[in-house]
């Protein structure tokens, strides 16, 4: 059975919506609950499932768009009239969004290797993302990635991150100085560095799948981001 939605950490409640169209949404739920009970976050997490436009609630503080097939997810969002409500929600300054793998593709304004006839995106990040950048399933791999200090300092763990890349995308280009590169993959055979994690203000995107590993640091980082934005908006209101 899937774990229940709430874990008791402390007093305040952070509400995280997970887009449950297709892909690794259950794994994100488990990882969030582990991150919440790790002691690195202050609030209790309440997880909300999103399968309809009416599930996108203003009281949500964070949103995760999990990995799966970007075509499958984008077609579903269009047919169920969820694109505009999601865009509106993400654009609110105090809301924090995280896309993994297909989620990164859906958040990018530009995309390479689309399906025939093109595919819709939410068009949030000022980036150009390539689908299946590393190739097909047989080219999927695990590798250590170089991670920005902001993410490293979110917990006391200091060992390197192991990135799981499954038919993964990559960021080809960044068009806005507000985009911070949070993770890079060094490829010795090509002697290059591929951008695999970025942040543009309140939106986070990773090409790999932290939810498929036991390492909860990216979930901790995301929850801390959510708490910071929430605190800021509470202080200003």
């Amino acid at each position: 059975m899937p774990p229940s939605g709430t874990v008791d950490c402390s007093c305040d409640v952070t509400r995280i919506g997970i887009l449950e169209v297709q892909g690794a949404f259950l794994e994100h739920k488990v990882a969030l609950q582990k991150a919440c009970s790790s002691g690195y976050t202050k609030n209790t997490v309440e997880i909300m499932s999103i399968r309809n436009a009416s599930d996108i609630k203003p009281e949500m503080d964070g949103l995760i768009i999990p990995g799966g097939e970007s075509t499958t997810i984008s077609l579903f969002l269009r047919r169920n009239k969820m694109e505009e409500p999601l865009r509106d929600w993400i654009h609110k300054k105090h809301h924090v969004t995280w896309g993994t793998c297909a989620g990164m593709i859906l958040l990018s304004k530009q995309m390479e290797h689309q399906k025939e006839g093109g595919q819709p995106t939410l068009g949030i990040l000022d980036t150009d993302v390539s689908r299946n950048f590393f190739g097909r399933q047989v080219a999927s791999f695990e590798s250590t990635i170089e991670v920005h200090d902001d993410v490293m300092s979110c917990s006391s763990q200091k060992e390197p991150f192991n990135g799981v890349f499954i038919r993964a995308p990559a960021v080809l280009e960044v068009y806005n100085p507000e985009v911070t590169v949070l993770g890079k993959l060094h490829r010795p055979e090509k002697n290059d560095d591929v951008i695999v994690a970025i942040r543009q203000e309140n939106v986070l995107a990773t090409a790999f799948h932290p939810e498929l590993t036991a390492d909860i640091r990216w979930h901790v980082y995301f929850l801390q981001m959510v708490e910071n934005y929430k605190r800021r908006s509470n202080n200003t209101s």
């Binding site: 449950e20 169209v21 297709q22 892909g23 690794a24 949404f25 259950l26 990995g67 799966g68 097939e69 499958t72 793998c101 297909a102 499954i166 038919r167 799948h209």
Partner: peptide, 8 residues
């Protein structure tokens, strides 16, 4: 990542 999907 075929979870939660349909394969035809």
């Amino acid at each position: 990542m075929a979870k939660g999907g349909i394969i035809m």
